[in-house]
Structures are given as C-alpha cells and as structure tokens.
Amino acid sequence: MSESCEITLTVNGVRHQVSVEPRRTLADVLRIDLGLTGTHVGCEHGICGACTVLMDDQPVRACLVFGVQADGSSIRTVEGLAANGELTDLQQAFSRHHALQCGFCTPGFLMLAEGYLAETPAPDRVAVREMVSANLCRCTGYQGIVDAIVDVAEQRFHERPI
C-alpha cells in the first residue's frame, strides 16, 4: 500500500519503535506488532469498546485510532494492570462480583473504568451505570460490572490519602 512511518510508543512503561502503514489501527499495532493480544477487537467501528485502552490516561477505542496518531503517546493496556503479578483491586472486584463470563470484553471495561475512576473518584451508582453503558458486554447483563466498579470506587475513596 503506502509507505510505512516510524512511530514511537510507550506501552505499559516500555518504549517501542514500530514501522507502520498510515492506515494501520492502534489495535493492530498493539495486537500484531507488539503481541499484546489482551486488547480485543469486537466491532472495528468504535461501538463495543472491547479494544478500549488508555492513551495518555484517556480511554480511547484502539480500533478508531491509527497507530500514527498514537506516535509519541503513552499507552496503557490490560497487560499493564497487574504489573507486579497481583491482580489490582478492580480486577479482584470483577472476579468477586462475577463481572465477566467469556472475558472477551473484559479488558475494555477494565481500562474504561480505570480511566474513569482516575478522573471521577467518588461516582454514584447512576453515574457508573452511565459510564459502563459506553461499552458492550453480551454475557453478564452488566449488573456485576456496575457492582464491581461501585465497590472499588467506594474502597478507593475511603482509602485515599487525606
């Protein structure tokens, strides 16, 4: 197709230089070029949110961002969450509340919620439900996902440094 471009990405704290075609999506860069297959592709048109990652701390659909647009940015993916091996509070809450079944959409919900909670430390249940409605899950009916995020939001709020 067209000529490749050199881009630099920091993914989960690690710098990568990748040569990509301008039309290559960030999702494909992460999955195919960097082997980070935890980010899943569910619709490729920005609705389902399975591919949600944090780009400079903001949730983005990795299927709607081209790799070249992410040049110079810092990306967090699901693989970066339990960096020290132990599941994070949010991951543990997802398991506790049975917020996942097939697990395909789960990385997207985790990254969406991490991005959201970083900006909105004390959301109420209605706000969480509204935020969760950004992504699609076909297995759970969402109740567990909402419960898990509300649980973690409360926990983090009470444990916040004062």
Binding site: G38, T77, E79, L81, A82, L87, S95, L100, G103, L110
Partner: peptide, 11 residues
C-alpha cells in the same frame, strides 16, 4: 477469571 482479567486469555 485470572487470565481473562490479565488479558492473557487466548481467543
């Protein structure tokens, strides 16, 4: 759950 939450499930 562990592998799905870590993104290490394999589809």
């Amino acid at each position: 759950d562990s592998r799905f939450l870590r993104g290490t499930g394999r589809y």
